[in-house]
Design a protein around this nucleic acid. Sequence first.
DNA 1: GACCGCCTCACACTTTTTTGTGATTGTCAC
DNA 2: GTGACAATCACAAAAAAGTGTGAGGCGGTC
Lengths: 207, 207
Amino acid sequence: MIDVIIVEDIREIREGLQLLIGSCEGFTCTHSFPSAELAVEAVPSLGPDVVLMDINLPGMNGIEAVRILKEKCPATLFIMSTVYEDDENIFESLKAGASGYLLKKTAPSRIMEAITEVTQGGSPMSSQIARKVIDSFRKKDSIDDNDILTPKEKEVLKALAKGLRYKEIAAQLDVSIETIRSHARRIYEKLQVQSRTEALNKVFGRN
Amino acid sequence: MIDVIIVEDIREIREGLQLLIGSCEGFTCTHSFPSAELAVEAVPSLGPDVVLMDINLPGMNGIEAVRILKEKCPATLFIMSTVYEDDENIFESLKAGASGYLLKKTAPSRIMEAITEVTQGGSPMSSQIARKVIDSFRKKDSIDDNDILTPKEKEVLKALAKGLRYKEIAAQLDVSIETIRSHARRIYEKLQVQSRTEALNKVFGRN
DNA sequence: GACCGCCTCACACTTTTTTGTGATTGTCAC
DNA sequence: GTGACAATCACAAAAAAGTGTGAGGCGGTC
């Protein structure tokens, strides 16, 4: 029996999901909460198998709630349920400890499938969201799709990213150290930053 | 019309796939190769939409082939097709530029689905594989799982990661700039690096 | 109590980075 | 052929980072 808890502020959706899950064989949904605060308070003592968590909640958001709850209940699996499809929310959710990421528009049958999957060691998410995740995985090339930097500047920036010193970069590219200085200066100007680390945070979107 | 190329050393599988894809409406599969070397040679001039790439090939493996081909054909999408389910092969493939990862046991209908998905901006992979990806994701951004640094050092390192200057960090933590220097020094010693960027590459495993 | 690790601070010195202000060459578009 | 811009180099100065050495206080453990 898989015990599911729902955190969702819109009553219709919350009760709809609860009804859906409760009516499926092998699943129970005895509790649901309309806010992150209430969930954070109650969930640890309930120790459910799965929590379906909305992101946009009044007060504390769902991501923060997952961060707190995953800490207290490492065994519980969290699936985000949201309308947001942006990188920021996806990555933050996953970093916070979510194992799945569903969009609100997901069909009920797929939701049940996702709950099953997550308990079997899977990570249910749409193919599109998976792409975002794996793209971030390979963000070495994110320098290349920057269109304000020239090829040479990108080359220098990659070297800067490796932590090389100006003199080392100059040797590698077989130019004067003054040239590297110039490139670095232009790069910083274009990116509107004033240090190597800031520039890297900017292009790698890491922050 | 989606043009697919197959790289697979086992003739039965290769021809089977070619037949399967060729028989589906909206897809063509005019070329296939039994080795990575042949594919690396020929694919750039063919510029297919999708390449279905085996990993275990005689000679050069499929991951290396993807690394080379993705460089030359950024628009082409690569889907790995393999029996390997280990983290190493998955991560290396994705880092090399693959957009999807299928197991050999995948049903033919799912393979066609995957090819469609990948051209629509998705990343077809099993739920289990997605989990492995997001699990590794979580380890990334956490300086916290580093057990050789003290809490204060981690705090300083996080500030260093933001690109803050020593004086700014000192102000933020309300200590002397000399203290920040000391912390930075200890951090570099422990991580065995000699610059901020190197330290960040080390903890974020970016290299 | 002695020892040790963590956090704190200080001074001095070297190296590197960042910034300011140039200048030359070559290429490409208009 | 002029203007815009990329790439190259130069000199100089200010700011910041990195390194060596030392030291005091504080909370734990043995």
